[in-house]
Design a protein around this nucleic acid. Structure first.
Length: 364
DNA sequence: GTAGGTTCATTGGGCTATGC
DNA sequence: GCATAGCCCAATGAACCTAC
């Protein structure tokens, strides 16, 4: 312990090297900046694209992108993310070296006018997608977005088509929610987005986006609800469905179950339909207690005061209608609300969740 | 240069210790 | 007894690496 503390104090004597490099050329400075990025805190591709953009079109990043980044309090997109959206709209690709980001296939710089026009379209695309997220998907904040990368193709489509038509909106929602649950954008993200963007060049539509990815986006199955995470793509999809169904709190019928279940200013909370302490008492393990089939959503302020009672007991005191229970896919058969029937309850709840979610997501 | 596999970094949930 | 802080770990997205 003493050695560790002594070692820590040595940091005060650590010699930090400084190299002075004089230049008036912003481009040259950026190249040096990118080259030095191999050590220390590594910057993301988006950071480097942003640095190059600042050189290519002075003022665009510091004024226009920043304005959009700060415009929507519940959808605070980062500058690197917006830069990647702009890059996708401007060049039709994302996978590139930073210093070649704003060049065409012949190696020539895109003109300032071209990039500014692309930004005008990107900004419009971002606005349309936020409207789509709040109205069709019914997410009121960016906290519920499982993957920001998934928004990029949608923003490109909305930018090029001046929005997402009401006819396409439901397919776009199906695509976004399934892309989240299937963790479509993990692994080689830039390669995959580039492949999608190449397809979209041929036909810029949500239908084409769906066709390009459908093989990986199989419909929801009961096993998809065997998750313990309270935050995550399955919960985001469930909350979207609850808002669509105009689900209400179990104690306060006027309170819409619309919002998020975790994080700062969460409006909702997860309620274990079979209380943890009850299941623990009956020898159930964590994986059986904390599983989506046992989760319901209620308002943050609600205290159902259930202790270790069975649902069959405590639900008699709670003035919730069958229609609200149906919205949350809770089996109405009261015989399943006894702890001895827990396995059958989970099986039936998973079946109802699967059927309801697939109906909500709609057909291709 | 690209695709796909692997590794790394970040985030959020759960648990426990501590303070009020 | 409750609230809060801090730690650990799993999940996940991003970055990196390698084979073709």
């Amino acid at each position: 312990m003493h050695d560790d503390l002594f070692g820590l104090t040595q940091i005060l004597d650590y010699a930090v090297g400084v190299i002075e490099y004089e230049t008036e050329d912003y481009r040259e400075a950026t190249q040096v900046f990118i080259r030095f990025n191999s050590t220390g805190k590594r910057l993301s591709k988006g950071d480097l694209f942003l640095a190059e953009l600042a050189v290519q079109v002075p003022g665009l990043a510091t004024k226009d992108l920043q304005r959009v980044a700060q415009k929507h309090p519940n959808f605070e997109f980062t500058m690197p993310f917006l830069t990647q959206c702009l890059l996708a709209v401007c060049t039709g690709r994302l996978k590139t070296k930073a210093k070649e980001a704003w060049k065409d296939e012949n190696g020539n710089d895109y003109t300032q006018a071209h990039i500014k026009e692309a930004w005008r379209k990107t900004e419009r695309g971002v606005e349309h997608v936020i409207r789509f997220l709040t109205s069709t998907v019914r997410w009121q904040s960016a906290d519920l977005i499982p993957s920001f990368n998934a928004l990029i193709p949608l923003i490109v489509i909305a930018a090029e088509n001046s929005g997402i038509t009401p006819r396409d909106a439901e397919l776009a929602r199906r695509w976004l929610l399934l892309a989240g649950v299937r963790a479509y954008f993990s692994g080689s993200v830039h390669s995959e987005i580039d492949r999608i963007l190449r397809r979209l060049k041929k036909r810029m539509s949500v239908r084409e986006l769906w066709n390009a990815t459908a093989r990986s986006l199989r419909k929801i199955a009961p096993s998809d609800f065997q998750v313990s995470r309270i935050s995550g793509s399955v919960t985001s999809m469930y909350l979207s469905m609850l808002a669509e169904r105009d689900a209400r709190d179990w104690l306060d019928r006027h309170f819409r179950l619309d919002g998020k279940v975790h994080g700062h200013n969460a409006q909702l909370q997860i309620h274990h339909f079979f209380p943890k302490s009850l299941l623990k008492k009956h020898g159930r393990g964590e994986d059986q207690i904390n599983t989506f089939g046992n989760y319901a959503v209620i308002s943050k302020g609600s205290n159902l005061d259930v202790l270790a009672e069975e649902p069959a007991t405590y639900m008699k005191r709670i003035p919730v209608s069958d229609s609200e229970l149906e919205k949350q896919c809770i089996p109405l058969d009261r015989d399943l609300w006894h702890v001895g029937q827990y396995d059958d309850f989970l099986r039936e709840r998973s079946r109802l969740l699967t059927a309801s979610t697939n109906a909500f997501l709609g057909k291709n």
